[in-house]
Amino acid sequence: MIQVIAGALCGVLALVALAGLVTGRPFGRAVIIVSAAIELVLIVHLVAGVGQLLGTDTVPVVTYLGYLIGVLIVLPAAVMWASVEQSRAGPAVILLASLTVGFLLLRTHDIWALAGV
Rank of each mutant, 00 (worst) to 15 (best):
M1H: 07
Q3W: 08
Q3R: 08
V4T: 09
I5D: 06
I5V: 13
A6L: 00
A6T: 02
A6H: 00
G7N: 12
L9S: 12
L9E: 14
C10S: 08
G11E: 05
L13T: 04
A14M: 07
A14H: 07
A14N: 05
L15W: 08
V16M: 05
V16N: 07
A19P: 00
L21N: 02
L21H: 04
F27N: 07
F27M: 12
G28I: 02
G28Y: 02
R29P: 00
R29I: 10
R29V: 10
V31G: 14
I32T: 14
I32R: 12
I33A: 15
I33F: 10
I33R: 15
I33N: 12
V34T: 15
V34K: 07
V34C: 10
A36C: 12
A37L: 15
A37P: 04
E39P: 05
E39V: 09
E39L: 15
V41E: 11
L42T: 12
I43C: 11
I43K: 12
V44L: 11
V44F: 12
V47E: 10
V47L: 15
A48E: 07
G49I: 10
Q52T: 09
L53R: 01
L54M: 12
T58G: 06
P60G: 03
P60V: 03
V61W: 01
V62Y: 03
V62D: 05
V62A: 08
T63E: 12
L65W: 04
Y67P: 02
Y67A: 08
L68A: 04
V71M: 05
I73F: 14
V74P: 01
V74L: 00
L75S: 04
P76W: 08
P76N: 10
A77G: 09
A78N: 08
V79D: 02
M80F: 14
M80A: 15
A82R: 07
A82E: 09
S83M: 03
V84M: 13
E85M: 13
E85D: 14
E85W: 06
Q86F: 07
Q86L: 11
Q86R: 15
Q86A: 09
R88K: 13
R88G: 14
A89E: 10
A89L: 15
G90W: 04
G90S: 06
G90C: 05
P91N: 12
A92E: 03
I94S: 02
L95A: 11
A97F: 00
A97K: 01
S98F: 03
S98I: 05
S98T: 03
T100F: 02
T100E: 04
V101N: 06
V101P: 03
L104S: 03
R107Y: 03
T108P: 02
T108D: 02
I111L: 14
I111S: 07
I111R: 06
W112T: 11
W112M: 08
A113L: 13
L114E: 15
A115E: 11
G116C: 11
